[in-house]
Amino acid sequence: MTAYIIRRLGLALVVMFGVSVLTFLLTVIVPSNPAMRWVGPHAKLEQIEKARIELGLDKPVHIRYFKYVANFLRGDWGVSIRTHQPVLKDITTYFPASLELIIFGMFLGFAVGIPLGIVSAVRDGTMVDHGSRLFSIVGVALPTFWLGMILQLVFFKQLGLFPLAGRVAMMTRFTAPIEHITGLYLFDSLITGNFTAFGSALSHIVLPGITLAAYPLGLSARMTRATMLEVLGEDYIRTARACGLRERKILSMYALRNAIGPVITVGALTFAYSLVGTFLIESVFTWPGLGQYGSRAIISVDYPAIMGVTILIAFTYVVLNLLVDLIQAFLDPRVRLG
């Protein structure tokens, strides 16, 4: 097991190194002039030149790369051209909003998707199965940005059930301000007993949450169905049935336990995908999170911010992959010995 962990960690480090090189190279080939963006459109030539030296753009590429990595490891991720704030500070400010949205959306997606997949597998080939399969295929095919807008049309404009956008009602900010503990509004307002703010935050997260849930829902339903079908065909399930165990017990104790592994793997990786999905969803719902920060950075070609967000998401993906592999190796000896 130790050898496997070392090998897998080594591989993750190599990949992270590669990610940093690739991201850095992408910004080197950028056709726009970062120094010009830094000083603004009306700057004189000598001011641009001064900014070039200030930003270190006059140095050779490999020197700039090593300087970037050294600073990155020290927590200095550069300064955003758009906000003129340190990128890491910006990211820590915006990240909790996205995290809250992702946790809410993914929980919703998996809480509906997994049971849907189970029902579909148990009733294989029936109308229920066809319906739930179609539902899961629809979930994966929906353009999230469009789904968000349709939900706004129906639930805000037509039915008036949920607010249009934002994280919490403007009035609530003044009447029941949320004490900042973790930055997750639902959690913070709940543990401080601020139920007015909790209600407002909950009503605001429902629509973006459902929008984000569509993809994990479809994916988890499809995965659960496929793995459950496989497990239900195994000999030990037949044996359990032959022993006269109740169907409910067979499903929960034997089938689901063996089928859920791959679904959890996919779940962990969907987290990183959802981080990217927030670029679209937060833009529709004016949700002040990492996605909105990222998409604004993209529009203004704010390359330090783009690099920071890109590396953060790619690293999250690599680390989650690593964790999933290690957990799987821990649970299943075939993985580490294979």
């Binding site: 995908y273 981080l275 990217v276 998401i313 790619a314 690599v318 992959n321």
Partner: peptide, 11 residues
Amino acid sequence: TDVFLSFPPLL
């Protein structure tokens, strides 16, 4: 390939 696969495609 691994490096490229570490980025979600949309990102």
